[in-house]
Amino acid sequence: MLPKLFFGYFAVAITALSLLVVTRRNPVHSVMWMLLMFFNLASMYLFLNAEFIAAIQVIVYAGAILVLFLFVVLLLNLREELQTNRFIRAWPAGLVIALALLASIFFSISSFVPGISGRYTNDYVQKETFTKVLGQVLYTEYLFPFEIASVILLISIIGAIVLAKKRTRS
């Protein structure tokens, strides 16, 4: 009973906060609601025994990505945006597309059959701690994708500097 109660809280909070993110007129308010939603999401990951993912959700998403968003919102002067319409004129069409997607996913979930369980049972993960098990799999089986991820981050650093640099006219 108690786990379902917790899940109900997280489901209601995450849904309401994501609705607030997409409907606010002021982007700063959106960023703030998104921060709250990321914290709720991190606590839901704790609820799923994924404490390392909860930590990187708070550190990377809330700490790095949202601060970047906030910097850009503050850097751009969006005064005139506050007077324009919140949604496009054809917003019911967007609503219909989103609801149709939701309905099709719901109907396909009802026929979902889970596959065979892997060897990382909850008892094993709790005994070895989640972060250690994750590291063991990541640095042996998924070492090559991990190296590629570092190259992606390097390219994004270079790309961000090149794109955001002010061009000086000579």
């Binding site: 899940f7 997280f10 489901a11 995450i14 849904t15 994501s18 609705l19 993110v21 997409v22 409907t23 606010r24 982007p27 959106s30 799923l48 968003f69 850009v72 919102v73 751009l76 969006l78 945006e81 324009t84 919140r86 949604f87 496009i88 917003w91 069409a93 967007g94 609503l95 597309i97 989103a98 609801l99 997607l101 939701l102 996913i105 719901f106 979930i109 009802s110 979902f112």
Partner: peptide, 26 residues
């Protein structure tokens, strides 16, 4: 299934926001 439904709901909200908002940051 409940987690998958929550995931579907959040994904649809994201699709709705992407289709109907015109502020590039949102």
């Amino acid at each position: 299934n409940w987690y998958l439904m929550l995931s579907a709901v959040v994904f649809s909200i994201g699709v709705f926001g992407f289709l109907t908002r015109r502020n590039i940051i949102i």
